[in-house]
Simulated scan of single mutants.
Amino acid sequence: MRQTELSAVAAGYQMFQAALLDGRLRPGQFVSQKDLGAMLNLSVGALREILPRLQSERLLLVQPKRGIQIPVVDLPMIRDAFQLRAALEREAVVQAIRKVEDAVLEEQRHRHEEILAQLAQSDGHHVPVDGQKVDEDLHSLLMNATENELLMQAHHLNTIRMRMIRLDRIKLTRITLPSAFADHLAIIDAILMRDKHLAIDAMDLHVANARDRAMEL
């Protein structure tokens, strides 16, 4: 395959992920190869190059005679995604204890406290627009501390699944944000204390709370 074709395939892969995350492709949706190719601005040949990868990553299903289906967000998907998240992020907090400096963690604490203060000032009616980014940035910081490309790649793919679940079932709201951020602050404090067992327990509780919110709906 020529370099231009490789570039088109790589761009198409990224555009597919973007379409999942911005809601153009919804869980359970069927789409034809023609329509998907048009959405991603890919030729038929380039689309066929990325379909096996996307299917192996369980980001889509190729259904004979029916087309391409975006996976349904169901209880098995939620269970599997959160179980993988727990395993990855346990290792992340262990490595963060060893590698992330206090000043970086204190900055994370400050960002969380700012969002909580903004929520309180709005009487809890409006979720600060940066709340989701602060949430995601903490998890990215912890995973990057592993300095392990395989773990980070697995986390990236699982994050896409988590965002699909979030779009379909859970979002940070004025109800869920204080609880999620309280979990985050407990994780940050445990890492600052350099207490491995406390940090793992805090992360496990956070993931379990998020999983339970998703499975209740």
Rank of each mutant, 00 (worst) to 15 (best):
Ile175Thr: 14
Ile191Tyr: 04
Ile70Ala: 03
Met143Asp: 07
Val31Met: 09
Lys196Tyr: 04
Lys99Met: 05
Thr159Ala: 09
Ala210Ile: 13
Ala182His: 07
Ala186Leu: 00
Leu142Val: 11
Asp137Glu: 15
Gly124Ile: 07
Glu5His: 09
Leu172Tyr: 01
Ala154Met: 15
Leu105His: 08
Arg24Lys: 14
Ala11Asp: 02
Thr173Phe: 05
Gln33Glu: 15
Phe181Ala: 01
Asn209Cys: 00
Leu75Val: 12
Ala92His: 11
Ser32Glu: 09
Arg53Ile: 11
Leu138Phe: 13
Asp168Met: 09
Gln3Tyr: 08
Gln17Ala: 07
Phe181Met: 01
Leu217Cys: 12
Glu107Lys: 15
Glu149Pro: 00
Gly131Leu: 08
Pro178Ala: 11
Leu20Ile: 06
Ala11Thr: 07
Ala190Ile: 01
Lys133Tyr: 05
Met164Ser: 04
Arg26Pro: 02
Lys196Ser: 08
Arg66Leu: 10
Arg161Ser: 07
Phe181Gly: 03
Ser140His: 10
Ile97Lys: 07
Val44Glu: 11
Phe30Trp: 06
Glu49Thr: 01
Asp168Leu: 01
Arg169Gly: 09
Arg66Phe: 02
Asn41Ser: 04
Thr4His: 08
Ile78Asn: 02
Pro128Gly: 01
Glu113Phe: 01
Leu47Arg: 02
Val127Arg: 05
His125Gln: 15
Asp195Gln: 06
Leu105Ser: 04
Pro64Gln: 11
Ser43Asn: 00
Glu136Gln: 12
Ile200Thr: 13
Glu57Phe: 07
Met39Lys: 07
Ser122Asn: 10
Glu101Thr: 07
Gly45Ser: 15
Ala214Val: 13
Ala182Ile: 03
Ala180Val: 12
Lys196Thr: 12
Leu116Val: 12
Asp102Ser: 14
Leu60Pro: 06
Asp74Lys: 05
Leu205Phe: 13
Phe16Glu: 06
Asp201Phe: 02
Arg2Trp: 02
Val31Glu: 01
Phe82Asp: 02
Ala46Cys: 08
Ala103His: 13
Arg194Tyr: 06
Arg48Ser: 08
Arg85Met: 13
Lys99Ile: 01
Gly37Pro: 09
Leu150Arg: 14
Leu51Pro: 04
Arg26Ala: 02
Arg58Phe: 11
Ile170Met: 06
Ala18Cys: 00
Arg169Lys: 15
Gln3Leu: 12
Ala120Ser: 14
Leu142Arg: 11
Val9Arg: 00
Ile187Pro: 04
Ala8Gly: 07
Asp74Ala: 08
Glu147Leu: 13
Ala38Thr: 13
Met39Ala: 06
Leu177Tyr: 07
Ala38Val: 10
